[in-house]
Structure formats: structure tokens, C-alpha cells
Amino acid sequence: MDAGLKLRGIVAGYGQGDILRGLDLDVPAGQITCLIGPNGSGKSTVLRVISGLLAPRAGQVRLAGRNVTGWSPWAMLDGGVAHVPQERSLFPAMSVWDNVLMGAYINADRDAVARRATDIAQRFPLVARRRRDLAGSLSGGEQKTVEIARSMMLDPPVLCFDEPSIGLEPRARRTIFGILAELRRDGRTVLLVEQNARSGLAVADNGAVLDAGIVRLAAPASQLLDSPDVGRLYLGAS
């Protein structure tokens, strides 16, 4: 299935204010697209629109060619879109294993859920190793790994990540970006919002620069990494 995303003319915001002001964005199937931009430019709002947490005032969201504009979060999850938010979202007083199982809460087939959880534990050794430990006892990088493992419970073709490396030490960041690269090798579609723009673009196929609610520039990620203007504004280059 072509699990690409297309956003056209998206206007969205909170209260009476619009954060996104006619945004157009392509997220090609089977690739990583990294969305960068200054704080307040609307990066997290893009993910909220895609995952159904925020209904746009105007414009259209298309998933695999199908108009999914305004679908509920449940419908988007059931349709194959998983969203890993920036904030720590594990239940700290529950075990790692129970947190992972929560990723399939909309699936009533308990046997299928158990089989999928076993597959996830094989793919993410941390889940198997720490399955009985309370999620709150994990380090930041370990918690983010479990969040990603949980997001895989419904085998989604599309995953949206909001600042997955934020607050992590370098080794944990490398682990998380390595997991994202593995998801692409699986053929999954990944939309990555990342404040660490250089690291995000380095793992991505495509990049887009968001500013004041619209995409100012979209290009292969390698071109954005080499662009002096993008480097000066967003990558910390001189």
C-alpha cells in the first residue's frame, strides 16, 4: 500500500488563532521526512492535525490517496497512523510490558495482541529484558524506546514522531535515530519533527523547513544539510 501523506492548504490553530496558514507538505511513502523550523512555527501542530488530535479549519489531509481530513484520533490510529508525542507518555506505575500492551488497546483480539507483543519484544530487547519493571524506573532513552515499541503494536505503516531526541544524552539519541532508520528499512513512512535539525536531517530522506505556519522550503535532506542559508538559520552553522 502507498502509505504516503499529503497535506494541502492546511489552516489550523487553537482558539481564535491560526498556527498553520495554508500549509502544503508531502511525506513520501517508505521514507523519512524531517520537519524543522524555529520554536512556534507549528511543527507539533502539523502532527496533531495528521493524527486527528486537531481538526483543521481548512485544507485537506490525504493518506494513501484517501481523504482523511477531520478523522478522529481513533480512526487515524485504526487507519494506520501512530503518533509518538514529545512528552513522556508511558504510565510510570505500570510495568513495561503492560505499557506496550496498551499500544493495541483498540484491538479486541487478545490472542493477536499477545502474539504481536511477543514479536515486539523480540525486536526491542529492552522490552523483554525490563518487561516486569515499572516504566517510571527507566531512563529517558529507555522510556522513549518503549514508547516507540508501544506505537508498533498495531503494525502502523505511518509513524509521526515529535522531538524524539529531546532531553536525551548523546548515546540515547543515537539509539533512537538508529531505530528510526530501521523503521524506514521496514518500508514504513516516518514524519519526524526534530529540534536537533542536523541529526534529524542526517537520518532523513527528505526535509522541509517550516516557518510561520507554512513550508518555506522542501528538498532532499542532504541538500538542506548543505544549504548555507538553512545552516545559518537552523543548524547552528556560521
Rank of each mutant, 00 (worst) to 15 (best):
P92Y: 08
A172T: 10
Q195R: 11
R232K: 14
L235Y: 11
D155K: 14
A202D: 14
R110G: 01
V46H: 08
A197Q: 07
L192C: 09
G80M: 08
R57W: 01
L210S: 07
P156E: 03
I32G: 02
P92L: 05
F177C: 05
S89T: 12
M102N: 06
V193Q: 07
D226E: 14
A12T: 11
I148P: 07
V113Q: 13
G236N: 09
G200Q: 05
P228M: 10
G167W: 08
L54N: 03
A208R: 04
S227A: 12
T175Q: 13
V209W: 06
D109G: 01
S72D: 10
L77Y: 01
L217S: 00
L53H: 14
Q122V: 00
V230R: 02
G37H: 10
L5S: 08
D229P: 01
Y105D: 03
R198L: 05
V158L: 01
D211K: 14
R188C: 09
A104Y: 02
C34E: 04
V68F: 02
S139N: 08
L210K: 06
A3V: 01
E142I: 07
P157V: 01
G178K: 11
G22A: 11
L168K: 13
R66E: 12
A93F: 14
W71C: 10
D133G: 00
A219G: 05
A58I: 01
L126M: 07
A64Q: 04
A12K: 07
N39H: 09
M1F: 08
L183W: 02
M76C: 14
R216Y: 02
G207V: 00
R232Y: 06
L53I: 00
R150K: 14
I19S: 04
S139F: 06
L183M: 11
G207K: 02
A93G: 04
E87R: 13
R132D: 15
Q60V: 14
R188M: 10
L168W: 13
P220A: 03
E163A: 11
L201R: 00
G231S: 06
Y234M: 04
G40R: 03
E169H: 10
L23W: 09
R62F: 11
L183Q: 13
R110N: 03
A197P: 10
A149N: 13
D186E: 15
D186V: 03
P125M: 09
G236L: 07
G79N: 13
L134Q: 15
M1N: 08
S227N: 15
L224K: 01
G52L: 09
V81R: 00
P56W: 07
S227L: 03
F177I: 08
G30P: 04
Q16W: 00
Q86T: 09
D26C: 02
D18T: 00
W71A: 11
W97I: 12
A55V: 15
I148C: 07
R132P: 02
E169D: 00
F161V: 07
F124R: 01
A212Q: 14
R188P: 06
D24F: 11
L63R: 10
A237E: 14
G13H: 00
N196A: 13
G178R: 13
L183E: 13
R198V: 03
